[in-house]
């Protein structure tokens, strides 16, 4: 469960203080498939980054499964990310010199799992995202959609409780975007992993169970759908 209380984040640009988040409060339950929607500059990415311990808030608190992330040291934050949080980025952020298999394997290198087990898990998750045939391809030998599938597999391979996806479909065409969203939805249902993704795309919002509307750093809307598309 993710709990966000009175979250503020100010960026200083020269002498001007720019407020990116202005008192955000929300609770995201385990297994939710939540979109944070809003126009550019509304604070979506900032919110995701703070939830993911990649950035620190100016004030306010974030609890992940009961842990106040503001009290954690750099090392503890790294451990939290290592064990509990998976990231999917707009630009996929795969390591270009590694194959799909090796990219997905990276998060497991940090965990104390056995090599054989790692291999099974990597192959399993790549099959799950439909890339069983592409294990040994490098990112530049794959399409954007395939690369994002690898990125999703990489985020999920360590079985995190939370996956944060920042505009995961922004660099994809609408057909591929749909496929990726369906994949994320399927994985969310199958593994009961909490998905939080930011978007300004209506298509993405159509798939979300819950849409948190963000504007000028504040939540302006919070809608739940009973039966997502």
């Amino acid at each position: 469960m993710v709990e966000v209380n009175e979250l503020h984040k100010d960026y200083r640009v020269g002498k001007v203080l720019f407020p990116a988040l202005r008192g955000v409060n929300t609770v995201i339950q385990d297994g939710e498939f939540t979109a944070i929607a809003g126009p550019s500059g509304s604070g979506k990415t900032t919110l995701l980054n703070i939830i993911g311990c990649l950035d620190s808030p100016t004030s306010g608190t974030v609890y992940i499964d009961g842990t106040d992330t503001g009290t954690l040291t750099t090392r503890e934050k790294a451990n939290l990310r290592k064990n509990q949080i998976g990231f999917v980025f707009q630009t996929f952020n795969l390591i270009p010199v590694l194959t799909a298999f090796e990219n997905v394997e990276i998060p497991l290198l940090l965990l104390d799992t056995k090599t054989d087990e790692n291999k099974d898990r990597v192959v399993g998750i790549l099959e799950e995202v439909g890339l069983a045939e592409y294990l040994h391809r490098k990112p530049n030998e794959m399409s954007g959609g395939q690369q994002q599938r690898v990125a999703i597999a990489r985020a999920l391979v360590k079985r995190p409780s939370l996956v944060l996806a920042d505009e995961p479909t922004a660099n994809l065409d609408s057909t591929t975007a749909r496929e990726i969203l369906e994949l994320m939805q399927e994985l969310n249902r199958k593994f009961h992993t909490t998905f939080v993704f930011s978007t300004h795309d209506q298509l993405v919002m159509d798939y979300a169970e819950r849409i948190i509307g963000l504007r000028d750093g504040m939540i302006v809307d919070d809608k739940r759908k009973e039966t997502p598309a």
């Binding site: 993911g52 790294a78 290592k82 064990n83 990231f87 390591i95 990276i106 940090l110």
Partner: peptide, 10 residues
């Protein structure tokens, strides 16, 4: 890329 590795918990 260093950022990505850090995000993964490196």
């Amino acid at each position: 890329e260093i950022g990505t590795l850090k995000a993964m918990g490196f």
